[in-house]
Amino acid sequence: MIPSTKPPKHLKMRPPVAVAAERTEDLGPPKIEIRALNFYYGDVRSLHNITMSLADKSISAFIGPSGCGKSTLLRVLNRMYGLYPRQRAEGEVLIGGRDILGPNVDVAELRYRVGMVFQKPTPFPMSVFDNVAFGLRLGGGIRGAELKSRVESALRDAAIWDEVKDKLHADGRSLSGGQQQRLCIARAIAVKPEVLLLDEPTAALDPISTLRVEETLQALREKYCIVVVTHNLQQAARVSNVTGFMFMGELVEIGPSSRIFTSPQDRRTDDYITGRFG
């Protein structure tokens, strides 16, 4: 592991792979801006000086070998790491122009604004309807008919409405694995978050369910800033506008997926996508 060293703030250790230019033209203003982000598990630094910006209404995918820090990066964006002791992030992360790492940030409110879907489907032990309504009820103020219509539209957006509209009161855990995962997506988008984070969302699913989830993501692209972490290169190539390659805690390069997968600029990216390691 790399020993902990405090990076000199003024010195950019690695030139930020500036793809913002080529991307922003296509994709509009950035939703997430990350500057000089470092992350530590205890004394071990697991993210190194990451700087980048991610556009709204697009899908950004992060690829890289296990332990490269891509999941850690995701967990910084909604401060999930705060649930665990001895983990901390340094640097600047803005979502929608608002700093999220500061000490005065209301973490519950941040997580409400940033939805997350996990590797394994995690339906709560309650009905399909209550699963989706869970977040809406947390925010308060949404009841009755409005609640119903919000649940329905979330399920529609997640492309699972037709499959569950007759069993809204069945236990969420009784659905199939792929349906469970789309239920979790519906639950995450029901509160209309600004950003949707997905951590290996299809790793535990069969190919058909995977396809359905990918279609769902394609449809959601028009509304949300979506960040996906995946070890499935084809998936990144299929669904994302932008792909970032991470290696040993560093963001090696980031750019339009079409370019990353056809003509990567960094040798390590090339090695990884051609299957020479990882």
Binding site: N78, L83, R111, G115, M116, F124, P125, M126, L138, L197
Partner: peptide, 27 residues
């Protein structure tokens, strides 16, 4: 109870008390 269930609830902005009462106890 799978850790993911707790994390999912926290990721929706639920405080631990809410996660415990609404998700963990039923689970």
């Amino acid at each position: 109870v799978p850790v993911g269930m707790k994390d999912s609830s926290a990721a929706l902005g639920a405080y631990p008390w809410r996660t415990t009462l609404s998700v963990l106890y039923p689970a």
